[in-house]
C-alpha cells in the first residue's frame, strides 16, 4: 500500500481523486457508511411502509416487485424493517462512541497523569475487561430492563476500558516526549499542555479506535437483540429481524439474509474507514496545500 502510494504520480486533478488513489479505503468505507446513514435518516421516503404493519396475507412472502425483501413471519415488510433497522444500529454505534470516548478519555488522562489514581482505575478497568463484553451487557440489561437507552449504556460500559487503556498509553508516551518537557520548562500551565500537546496527538489514534468501537457496538447490539437481550422484540433492529427469521430460515432465508447483508455492509464500511483513517493520520502525510 505505502510503496504503491509513493510510486504513483501525485498529479491527479482534484483532491478527491488523490485521496482515492492513495487511500481507497477511506472513499469506499466512507461511501458505505454514508449509504447506511442516508438510509437511516431518509427511511420514511425510501418507499417504505410502517415497519410494524402486520399483514398476515403476506406471511413469508418471497422477495418480489411489491415486497422487495419479502415478508416476515407475521407479514411485516422486511425491506421497511431493514431500512428502519439502520436507525437503531447507527444510533447505538454513535451513542456508544460518544459515551465510551468521553469517559474513556477522562479516565485515560487521569490515570496517565496521576499515578495513585492509575493504580486504582486500571485495576477496575482490568476487572471490567476480564468479563466478555456481551456477557457484561447482558447482565447490565437484565438489571435495568431492555430499552435502546440501556443497550447503549451497557455496551458503552464494556467499551470504556478499551478507550481508557489506549488514552492512558498514549498519554504516558506523550508526557515523556521532549516537546512536552520543553513546554513544561517553558512555563506552560498544565491545562494548556493537555490542550495543546497531549489532546491533539491523542485524537488520531482515538478517531481510529472510534470507528472500531462503532463497528463493534453495531455488532454487539445485533447479537444482544438476536439472543433476546437487546432492544424490545417489536423494535425493527437487525438483530431482532434475524432472530425472528432464524426459526424459518430453511423455508424463508430472505428474512435473515437482507438484515444480515445490511449488518455486514455497515460494519465492513466502518472498519474500512477506520483502516483508511489510520493511514492518513500519520502526520507525515499532512498536506498543507
Amino acid at each position: 500500500m505505502s510503496i504503491s502510494a509513493i510510486t504513483q504520480t501525485p498529479s491527479s486533478p482534484t483532491g478527491l481523486m488523490r485521496i482515492w488513489k492513495r487511500y481507497p479505503n477511506i472513499i469506499i468505507g466512507g461511501a458505505m457508511l454514508a449509504i447506511a446513514v442516508f438510509a437511516a435518516i431518509a427511511a420514511p421516503w425510501l418507499g417504505t411502509i410502517d415497519p410494524q404493519t402486520i399483514a398476515p396475507f403476506n406471511r413469508l412472502e418471497v422477495p418480489g416487485t411489491e415486497f422487495w425483501f419479502g415478508g416476515d413471519l407475521v407479514g411485516r415488510d422486511v425491506y421497511s424493517r431493514t431500512i428502519y433497522g439502520a436507525r437503531i444500529s447507527l444510533a447505538v454505534g454513535l451513542g456508544v462512541v460518544v459515551i465510551g470516548i468521553f469517559f474513556g478519555l477522562l479516565i485515560g488522562i487521569l490515570s496517565g497523569f496521576v499515578s495513585w489514581v492509575d493504580q486504582i482505575l486500571m485495576r477496575v478497568m482490568d476487572g471490567l475487561m476480564a468479563i466478555p463484553s456481551i456477557l457484561l451487557a447482558v447482565a447490565l440489561i437484565s438489571l435495568t430492563g431492555a430499552s435502546l437507552k440501556n443497550v447503549i449504556i451497557a455496551i458503552s460500559i464494556a467499551e470504556v476500558p478499551r478507550v481508557a487503556r489506549l488514552v492512558r498509553s498514549v498519554v504516558l508516551q506523550l508526557k515523556e516526549r521532549p516537546y512536552v518537557e520543553a513546554a513544561i520548562t517553558a512555563g506552560t500551565p498544565f491545562i494548556l499542555i493537555l490542550w495543546r500537546h497531549i489532546l491533539p496527538n491523542t485524537l488520531a489514534p482515538l478517531l481510529v479506535q472510534a470507528t472500531y468501537i462503532f463497528a463493534s457496538a453495531v455488532l454487539t447490539e445485533a447479537i444482544l437483540s438476536f439472543i433476546g437481550a437487546g432492544t424490545p422484540p417489536s423494535t425493527p433492529s437487525w438483530g431482532n429481524i434475524i432472530a425472528e427469521g432464524r426459526t424459518v430460515f430453511s423455508i424463508a432465508p430472505h428474512i435473515v439474509m437482507f438484515p444480515g447483508i445490511a449488518l455486514s455492509f455497515t460494519v465492513l464500511g466502518v472498519n474500512l474507514l477506520g483502516d483508511g483513517l489510520r493511514d492518513i493520520f500519520d502526520p507525515r502525510f499532512v498536506s498543507r496545500t
Binding site: 516526549r177 516537546y179 520543553a182 513546554a183 495543546r196 500537546h197 491533539p200 496527538n201 502526520p283
Partner: peptide
C-alpha cells in the same frame, strides 16, 4: 525530531 510538536 521529538522536541517539536508535529501538530503545531
Amino acid at each position: 525530531f521529538a522536541s517539536l510538536n508535529p501538530r503545531r
